[in-house]
């Protein structure tokens, strides 16, 4: 018995080729889910195996990798995936959005606007936006083929009838270039507008479901809505308690057992960068310097 030895970035070259071909077709057909022969990875399905396979297939020795989960670089799964690539590919890693060439994410798009040349790789649990309306792959495939998206509009409209709002708050479906309806992965709908006309390339990997899809830069991405109920994003009534940022996505942190809570940036890099630049939120002790600024 020989003990295992692994290739650069773990995947063997044949697997990378297969995934690379899928990525190119995904770019050529934005929003369409390309089936690929997803491999078992050394982390469980649901932990980002799709994103990891995409990242492993595009990554080169000169890349600088950032990994976030819930917007944070320090969540355990982000740490684990970052360590995996540092070990198997020896690439440089960073927590700075601006300094990364490849960013793998679960559930968020960074607040710092992405630039041309950056690649955002999403981990996707259920790539099929129609799956919860129609569980059968054979049916949903035909619906995409025929551009038959009435069902999803009906679902959104039922929400309005029942609640007065569209009650989808994350994994909010989008239409790409007027053709394919796509699941943006479980990002909060707050992040949906960032997908539209982004200068960065966005790749989506679903390992267990064996699908890859893509948004080239400068692609039209429209969140589904109705004329009388236009799409809108979450708004927070207070700024980040740490960096005073507004117009960003906030996490609610329970601070004691008496109902005390505070709101802080979900994007830790964004928050730390702002704090380093001298921004201070109401949750931090106020200083003289702060007042002067």
């Amino acid at each position: 018995m020989t003990l295992p030895a692994y290739n650069f970035a773990y995947l063997d070259e044949q697997t990378k080729r297969m995934i690379r071909r899928a990525i190119l077709k995904a770019i050529a057909i934005p929003g369409y889910q390309v089936p690929f022969a997803s491999r078992e990875m050394p982390m469980p399905y649901g932990w980002g195996t799709g994103g990891v396979q995409v990242t492993a297939s595009i990554l080169g020795p000169d890349d600088v990798l950032k990994v976030i989960d819930q917007g944070a670089d320090d969540t355990t799964n982000a740490v684990s995936i970052r360590a995996f690539f540092a070990k198997t590919a020896g690439v440089a890693t960073t927590t700075r959005t601006a300094g990364a060439t490849v960013i793998q994410t679960r559930h968020r798009i960074p607040e710092t606007p992405l630039k041309a040349g950056q690649i955002l790789v999403y981990q996707v649990p259920i790539p099929e936006p129609l799956r919860f309306l129609e569980p059968r792959e054979t049916e949903t495939r035909v619906m995409h083929g025929l551009e038959e998206y009435g069902l999803i509009q009906v679902k959104l409209y039922e929400d309005i009838a029942r609640h007065g709002h569209i009650a989808t708050t994350y994994a909010y479906p989008v239409k790409i270039e007027g053709r394919y309806v796509m699941d943006p992965s479980p990002i909060p709908k707050f992040d949906n507008p960032k997908m539209r006309n982004s200068p960065a390339l966005q790749l989506f990997g679903a390992g267990r479901e064996k699908r890859i899809y893509a948004l080239p830069p400068f692609t039209e991405v429209v969140s589904l809505d109705f004329e009388d109920h236009p799409f809108s994003v979450q708004r927070f009534s207070q700024p980040c308690a740490l960096c005073n940022a507004t117009g960003v996505y906030l996490d609610e942190v329970v601070t004691d057992d008496r109902g005390g809570r505070m709101f802080v940036c979900s994007d830790t890099d964004h928050c730390e960068t702002r704090q380093a630049d001298g921004h201070r939120g109401p949750g931090l002790p106020q200083t003289q310097q702060e007042d002067a600024a």
């Binding site: 650069f8 990378k16 190119l24 990554l59 080169g60 390339l201 830069p217």
Partner: peptide
């Protein structure tokens, strides 16, 4: 150097396809 050259060529082709 197949591993690194194919990665570099792929990235160039991917970028060209994306732009």
């Amino acid at each position: 150097d197949p591993v690194f050259t194919s990665q570099a060529v792929f990235r160039a082709v991917m970028d060209a396809s994306a732009r």
